[in-house]
Amino acid sequence: MSYDLVLLPSGVASSPEAVDDYLTGQDGKPAGDTVTAIAAELDERNAALPEADSFLGAPAADGVLGDALFVSTPYDAIGHTRSLLFELGTPHGYAVWDPQLAWLADPAGSVPAAVTHGGAGEFPYLTKQLVDLWIPELGQPGPYLIAETADQHYIQTYRHPDGHFDLEYREGSADKHFAATANDPRIVADLIWSWANGDRSGFDALDWQRLTF
């Protein structure tokens, strides 16, 4: 069984329905130069690996559809393949669509960050749409999210089984390391997005305590 990921141009869709409409509209269109080149690079990298380490379930070149690229990958290679799509697609203004989870990672309006989603792995940027999707859905086995924008500059949250969240941020040094708790995932999502954008105006909504170790 394989897992599907899709590259599509940034800004062409903002909802699952719009993604489906866009991809349907690509049927029968000539193969785009950018996705053709990305597919060739994926196939070249895959061919350089031992068969046991293959990250493609089918040749990427077969997945070009107009200006979109469908990529099939084994389940144990999802994180690696997604990282490659970000690496190769983001510089050319391409978004990554995950049809299984209905997640659209679009670089438009994003904040560069090293993001770790406890259940899905690593992402190279944060968007408001993704934060709003991710936080209410956090759960076992990895109910946490971390976003780091520089060394020792990060915000993270952990969702407990009863639904409440621990929220923590650090801004470079031990005296700027704070923690709080919250029950509303919308507040947590808003604060994470605000923090990533350098906005602390809403942080007084929680009772922050400086952490000491």
Score class of each variant (00 low, 15 high):
residue 16 P to D: 13
residue 17 E to L: 12
residue 19 V to A: 00
residue 20 D to R: 15
residue 20 D to W: 08
residue 20 D to N: 13
residue 21 D to F: 06
residue 22 Y to F: 14
residue 22 Y to R: 08
residue 22 Y to S: 00
residue 23 L to P: 02
residue 24 T to G: 12
residue 26 Q to S: 13
residue 26 Q to V: 04
residue 26 Q to C: 15
residue 28 G to C: 05
residue 28 G to A: 03
residue 29 K to S: 14
residue 33 D to F: 04
residue 33 D to L: 11
residue 34 T to I: 15
residue 34 T to V: 15
residue 35 V to F: 01
residue 36 T to R: 07
residue 36 T to L: 04
residue 37 A to C: 03
residue 39 A to G: 05
residue 40 A to S: 15
residue 41 E to Y: 01
residue 42 L to C: 02
residue 44 E to T: 15
residue 45 R to H: 12
residue 46 N to E: 07
residue 46 N to D: 14
residue 47 A to M: 02
residue 48 A to W: 14
residue 48 A to K: 15
residue 49 L to S: 09
residue 49 L to Q: 14
residue 50 P to Q: 07
residue 50 P to G: 06
residue 50 P to S: 00
residue 51 E to W: 05
residue 51 E to K: 12
residue 51 E to R: 10
residue 52 A to K: 09
residue 53 D to V: 11
residue 53 D to Y: 14
residue 54 S to Q: 10
residue 55 F to K: 11
residue 56 L to Y: 09
residue 56 L to S: 07
residue 57 G to F: 04
residue 57 G to A: 08
residue 57 G to C: 09
residue 59 P to D: 11
residue 59 P to Q: 10
residue 60 A to K: 03
residue 61 A to E: 10
residue 61 A to W: 05
residue 62 D to F: 09
residue 63 G to S: 13
residue 63 G to I: 07
residue 63 G to P: 08
residue 69 L to W: 02
residue 71 V to S: 08
residue 72 S to F: 07
residue 72 S to L: 11
residue 73 T to E: 09
residue 73 T to W: 07
residue 76 D to S: 14
residue 77 A to S: 12
residue 77 A to W: 05
residue 78 I to V: 14
residue 78 I to M: 08
residue 78 I to F: 04
residue 79 G to S: 09
residue 79 G to L: 08
residue 81 T to Y: 12
residue 81 T to H: 11
residue 81 T to F: 06
residue 82 R to F: 02
residue 83 S to N: 13
residue 83 S to F: 05
residue 83 S to I: 05
residue 83 S to R: 09
residue 84 L to S: 08
residue 85 L to E: 01
residue 85 L to S: 02
residue 86 F to E: 00
residue 87 E to W: 09
residue 87 E to V: 10
residue 87 E to Y: 12
residue 88 L to Y: 13
residue 88 L to T: 11
residue 89 G to Q: 04
residue 90 T to M: 02
residue 91 P to D: 08
